[in-house]
């Protein structure tokens, strides 16, 4: 059973423009606060470890999603790590072509069981298994953001 009437003139087609007028202010959370403070103040990466599951979470978590235990064993990981996947983006966030393609990798920091996504620079022909190290912003410039790490590069 279809509609009894259809739009048959193009001039009758119309779309009404609008937006969702929202913006968001995120807190980092309990574990996130600790992770980003450590990165900002000391330039170090902190994971959290579940002894029962023998898993080091990065970014850290205050609970273990596998067994639900509360986690309070904080463990420094990295700063170096191993590339587990790598790709080069030719399009940006809005779908337009990037002037300079950007290489992105999933990196397993030494001592962590999870992977971190970040940019790769100054590293021609990087392959899975390559060793990389972070290039951090200088201390005064760091804000407690994942962008306090400028990028990773091949060791």
């Amino acid at each position: 059973m279809g509609s009894s009437e259809q739009i048959d003139r193009v001039t009758d087609l119309r779309a009404w423009p609008g937006e969702f007028p929202v913006s968001h202010l995120y807190t980092m959370g309990i574990a996130g606060e600790r992770f980003f403070r450590e990165l900002k103040d000391n330039g170090r990466f902190l994971g959290s470890r579940c002894a029962a599951c023998d898993h080091v979470y990065l970014p850290p978590s205050i609970f273990c999603p596998r067994c639900f235990a509360a986690l309070d064993e904080w463990k420094e990981v990295g700063p170096q790590g191993t590339v587990r996947a790598v790709t080069t983006a030719h399009r940006g966030v809005d779908g337009t072509t990037l002037k300079t393609p950007e290489t992105l990798a999933l990196i397993q920091l030494d001592g962590a069981d999870d992977l971190l996504t970040h940019r790769i620079k100054e590293s021609e022909g990087l392959e899975i298994g390559a060793r990389v190290a972070p290039v951090l912003k200088e201390t005064p410039e760091r804000e407690g953001s994942i962008l306090d790490v400028r990028y990773f590069r091949a060791v």
């Binding site: 807190t27 959370g29 309990i30 574990a31 996130g32 606060e33 205050i62 639900f68 509360a70």
Partner: peptide, 18 residues
């Protein structure tokens, strides 16, 4: 306003319920 993230809040309630 809570400092916890959504998953952290969820865990605080869920682990307590269990």
């Amino acid at each position: 306003r809570a400092q916890e993230t959504g998953p952290e809040l969820a865990w605080l309630a869920a682990s307590q319920a269990l």
